[in-house]
């Protein structure tokens, strides 16, 4: 019986690291965390891979020791009279297995601290390039992007120029949300009455998925948006066109947009809500917190369609309201 269990245990030990290796080999498109499309996500990917190697080393050492010890010292019919020795400990061994983790922690801590400081600034690849400022406001449950310089506002999608650092100014109306575009880099919280800065940058053209990753209630799963990274010329062409042709954002329309609820449309406006309200300022949201309605307002069927055209490049303005 024990021998049979041993076999199972060993098999089990082998399956575990394999599944982790599967992770590492996963450089396919689906592993968005390991598939960076910009320098910020690149820094994070390097850090992740660096740590994975150390962690795999630890796992291998412990699994091998564990398997060998279990196999060798298992109780068998022939060793029933074996009385194990009265060992108290071994100072040298204990120093070794304290020192090695200390070294590993140092090896991980240095790049972590470096990267953590680095991410507070625009990516170093584009030092000297003036970042484009975009205010990203999370409202339950949609995303509003305002370009103060360009005087444009978009809802549920954001267009950015390639190779230019984007300075996202994060804030929210209502629940604490988090702006996350995995392929461009990690997230930060959007909080009402607070302003925070997140630097991201794309060095590929394409459409990337972004979302709110911090739970904000019923419509949270549908609070997604598209990021369209484009060549600089295309971007500025889009800016010009939008400024000229998009409808002007009115206060009334904006207040309708931030009402609690899922909004599947992608909208485009000239003019931004920053003209009359900045939710990053404490107290500004007071008149604007919409009350939540009673349960069961979100039905999947109504918001489902929102997922099908996700990937499609959609920069036309809707006349939604």
């Amino acid at each position: 019986m024990p021998a049979q269990q041993q076999k199972w245990l060993n098999l089990f030990m082998k399956v575990l690291p394999l599944s982790l290796l599967f992770l590492l080999t996963g450089c396919s498109e689906r592993f968005v965390l390991l598939n960076p499309k910009g320098p910020v996500a690149e820094v994070q990917k390097d850090l992740i891979l660096w740590s994975i190697w150390f962690m795999l080393f630890i796992i291998v050492v412990i699994f091998v020791l564990f398997a060998v010890i279990l196999w060798k010292y298992r109780e068998r019919p022939e060793n029933l009279d074996y009385e194990p020795p009265d060992q108290h400990g071994n100072t040298l061994l204990e120093i070794i297995w304290t020192a090695i983790p200390v070294l590993i922690v140092i090896a991980l801590a240095i790049p972590t601290v470096k990267a953590t400081f680095e991410l507070e600034k625009p990516p170093k690849e584009s030092r000297g390039v003036e970042p484009i400022v975009i205010h990203a406001t999370a409202a339950d449950w949609k995303w509003i992007f305002s370009y103060p310089e360009e005087n444009i506002e978009t809802v549920n999608y954001v267009n950015i120029p390639k190779d230019v650092p984007v300075e996202f100014k994060l804030t929210a109306v209502g629940g604490m949300s988090a702006l996350w575009i995995p392929e461009l880099g990690g997230q930060k919280y959007n909080m009402a009455g607070m302003g925070m800065t997140l630097y991201l940058q794309a060095d590929h053209v394409g459409t990337f998925k972004g979302r709110n990753s911090n739970f904000t209630g019923e419509g949270f799963a549908h609070q997604t948006f598209d990021v369209n990274a484009m060549e600089k010329e295309d971007f500025y062409k889009w800016v010009k066109e939008t400024q000229a042709s998009a409808p002007l954002l009115t206060k009334k329309q904006f207040n309708e947009i931030i009402q609690v609820g899922v909004l599947k449309d992608k909208l485009t406006f000239s003019g931004t809500h920053l003209a009359w309200v900045d939710f990053a300022k404490p107290g500004e949201h007071l008149d604007n917190i919409p009350a939540k309605e009673k349960h069961g307002t979100i039905k999947l069927e109504e918001v489902e369609s929102d997922h099908h055209d996700n990937r499609e490049h959609e920069s036309h303005q809707h006349e939604g309201h």
Binding site: S51, I59, F63, A115, P182, G186
Partner: peptide, 23 residues
């Protein structure tokens, strides 16, 4: 062995810059 996996992934999560992605 299982807790070791939980432990090492904990260390990975503790790396602030990487945690921006795992969070």
């Amino acid at each position: 062995p299982t807790f070791v996996i939980g432990g090492v992934t904990g260390v990975m999560l503790s790396m602030a810059a990487a945690d921006y992605q795992y969070h």
